[in-house]
Design a protein around this nucleic acid. Structure first.
Length: 468
DNA sequence: TGAAATGTTGGGGCG
DNA sequence: ACGCCCCAACATTTC
């Protein structure tokens, strides 16, 4: 064909882009297009942080395109209408896009495919979400067998290089890429696939062998922090996978290999939850486990606000929520702790937390985020048992032993010694004065007693009545 | 990728 | 030397 559209959605990269490669194989002229969908922009699953990251990513992508004579066409409106218009304007005979498995995207794409020549190609995951099923054709609902099957598959094709040159894009109207909001996030993630590759290489060279050992330490940089790049496809899952495979080949000790395998497991969790959302789209609004759909959640706007703003009086929880609010990212261990605190200690509906995370996280992905929340709440597939309640003090002592994570994000507690950092309310009053932090004045008194909350949540999940 | 409650064991103080 | 008790340390069960 003469002309095709490369419809960019969450694949903001030129390298290892199967949709772009196929468009270039089939058409002489390929027009890169991004659509601002008013329905998505207004969704309560979207927030300014990820939008800003998206716009930065589009700007970076556009300048890479321009280096090669191409450019990005940005439009706003209902995708079907805009694509129909664009096909008419450009005489495009095909639309190539990376397949997105979230319920909204699938519905949208199915509708578009009825009237327009839409070609979907894999790329969000290493293996397409619909590919991994049990022998009887049913989807997996337990992680371990899913991961065993995943690992047993013949390795995916190697990542594709970026195309060497791109065809010139004809004159077409395009919107300006929106600027960064007035108060940009103080996040450390710079958009773009070069940044993603840099971070990947750095992690493979300096972090992956220690990953199994350090990944739970909130005070260290033991994780890859690649999730935001994977979210918008500035890095493909396949690129991540192959980099890990190569690291595995160069591993010398079993410990090093364990680091790689543990990291790979996290990549497989991402694919597991993508598959779960694909086969069970109702999990987006409903507990996977039918017997846990009628929990009597507490209505507690003050508690929710304290959790959101990092003022619960539990230092690890507050540090984590402030890290999220100011950086757009949160350590995974901290995600489990804060999710447990909201659902178990405050007994607030996991959907509130799910939505808040989606609004704040740069890496906020409908499948992984939902999977994570339902896991912690105990309502999901292969979830943590409901009686598993994290103790925020013990979690802090285990995974932030010196308290440096807390001190970094909760400056009120900066001078509090390590033995009190995770439970400052037991600090003797003289010490509180010495370190300039009076609990109740400079830092909140805990908004809930953990021991009481634990008993309460066990009653509630058992379907029994509880007070307050 | 939990933590609390409960049970068991064994060393040591002490009459 | 012996039995008793306390309790830390570890193991198992329970939520």
């Amino acid at each position: 064909m003469k002309t095709a559209l490369w419809w960019i959605r969450r694949d903001l990269r030129l390298s290892d882009n199967q949709a772009l490669a196929e468009a270039l194989r089939q058409a002489g002229t390929v027009i890169p297009v991004f659509l601002l969908d008013p329905k998505l922009l207004a969704s309560d699953y979207v927030g300014p942080a990820r939008l800003a990251f998206l716009f930065d990513g589009l700007r970076t992508l556009d300048s890479k395109l321009r280096e090669q004579g191409s450019r990005l066409i940005l439009r706003e409106g209902d995708p079907l209408e805009v694509l129909t218009t664009l096909c008419l304007e450009s005489q495009a005979e095909g639309i190539f896009a990376e397949e997105d498995y979230s319920p909204y995207a699938r519905q949208r794409d199915q509708k578009i495919a009825l009237t327009l020549p839409l070609h979907l190609l894999p790329g969000i995951t290493v293996f397409p979400a619909q590919m991994l099923t049990k022998a009887n054709g049913e989807p997996y609902t337990v992680f371990t067998p899913f991961s065993r099957m995943w690992r047993s598959l013949p390795a995916s094709g190697r990542p594709l290089p970026a195309p060497e040159r791109l065809p010139v894009v004809p004159e077409l109207p395009s919107l300006e890429i929106p600027g960064t909001p007035n108060q940009p996030l103080d996040h450390s993630f710079k958009a773009g696939e070069e940044q993603a590759q840099k971070r990947l290489n750095d992690f493979i060279d300096n972090g992956i062998f220690e990953y199994a050992m350090l990944r739970n330490r909130m005070d260290l940089e033991g994780t890859s922090q690649l999730s935001s790049y994977l979210r918008l496809g500035m890095l493909s899952a396949r690129q991540a996978f192959w980099a890990a495979r190569q690291a595995s080949d160069s591993a010398k000790t079993s410990k090093e290999r364990e680091g790689v395998e543990t990291w790979l497991t996290e990549l497989i969790w991402r694919e597991f939850y993508t598959s779960i959302l694909y086969y069970f789209p109702f999990v987006r609004g409903t507990a996977f486990k039918a017997d846990l759909r009628s929990i009597h959640w507490r209505d507690d706007p003050d508690g929710l606000a304290a959790w959101q703003t990092g003022k619960t009086g539990y230092p690890v929880v507050d540090a984590a929520m402030r890290q999220l609010n100011t950086s757009g990212w949160m350590h995974n261990r901290a995600r489990m702790i804060t999710a447990s605190f909201l659902t178990k200690d405050l007994l607030i509906d996991w959907r509130e937390g799910e939505r808040y995370f989606m609004q704040r996280l740069l890496d906020g992905d409908p499948a992984s985020n939902n999977g994570g929340w339902q896991w912690t709440a105990g309502t999901g597939t292969d979830a943590a048992p409901y009686f598993r309640v994290f103790n925020p003090i013990l979690q802090g002592q285990k995974f932030d032993p010196l308290g440096n994570y807390v001190r970094r994000w909760v400056p009120e507690l900066e001078k509090v010694p390590a033995n009190y950092i995770h439970s400052p309310w037991i600090m003797p009053i003289e010490t509180q004065k010495q370190v300039g932090c009076l609990v109740g004045r400079d830092y909140p008194t805990p908004i809930v007693d953990h021991a009481m909350a634990r008993k309460r949540v066990l009653l509630a999940y058992g379907g029994r009545p509880y007070d307050v």
